[in-house]
Simulated scan of single mutants.
Amino acid sequence: MGMRTAPPGELVVRARDGDEQAWAALTERYTEMLWAIGRAYGLDRADAADVVQLTWLRLVEHIDALRQPGRVGAWLAVTARREAGRVLRASWRSPCPPDDLVPERLPGPPSPDRVVDDRERLTAVVDAIGMLPDLCRQMLRLFAASPTYAEVAAALDIPVGSVGPTRARCLASLRKRLEGPA
């Protein structure tokens, strides 16, 4: 069985013993989820990168103490949430939207009308997302990074079976807020 398909617990045991390929497989498997968690907290790229690095550092520091090596993904998700909370509390938050909410532009300068329309649409979406419950805001930011349902469940500490229905309710609520009063 290759490292890519090895169970997480086996990778942890091998990484404890200094197997560099096991470490590489762990980081390949979970780094995207850690990025998604950092971004779900509304952190900019630099702060999210700090969360990812700090989370891996915590695993290096505590790998010998893991009681359930097979649940390393959940351990990493919880640790990333804690680190993201620390970074968020320690930093001054800019009122600017995260980079991943800014629409991509077509080549060439946009017309002034297009700039105004895009800005108004972006502001409406950011405002509508900001009015959603915390769980919905975090979930929508996570899904913007394309993680799996299992990764979202681990990141938000909810059952995998509730991810789909919760996502549907969050999107319906966002849609309703964007459409405004009927």
Rank of each mutant, 00 (worst) to 15 (best):
A6Q: 12
D17G: 04
G18D: 06
E20P: 05
Q21N: 13
A22Q: 00
T27N: 12
T27M: 12
T27E: 14
E28V: 05
T31K: 05
L34W: 00
I37S: 03
G38V: 05
G38Q: 03
Y41R: 01
G42C: 01
L43F: 07
R45E: 15
R45Q: 12
A46D: 11
A48I: 04
A49S: 12
D50A: 07
V51L: 02
V51Y: 11
V52P: 04
Q53V: 08
Q53S: 06
T55F: 00
W56F: 11
L57Y: 14
L59Y: 12
V60D: 08
I63E: 07
D64W: 09
R67E: 13
P69Y: 08
R71S: 13
V72S: 07
G73Q: 09
A74R: 14
W75A: 09
L76V: 10
A77R: 06
V78G: 15
R82G: 02
R82L: 01
R82V: 00
G85S: 11
L88G: 09
R89E: 04
A90R: 06
W92K: 09
R93P: 03
R93W: 04
S94G: 05
S94Y: 07
L101R: 14
V102D: 13
E104Q: 12
P107H: 08
G108C: 02
P112W: 13
D117Y: 12
D118T: 14
R119S: 15
E120C: 14
R121I: 08
A124E: 13
A128R: 09
I129Q: 05
I129W: 01
L132A: 02
R137V: 00
L140H: 03
A145H: 15
S146G: 05
V152H: 07
V152I: 11
A154T: 04
A155S: 12
A155H: 11
D157C: 03
P159I: 06
P159F: 10
G161Y: 09
G164W: 09
L171D: 00
A172D: 12
S173P: 04
S173W: 08
S173C: 07
K176C: 04
R177Y: 06
E179V: 03
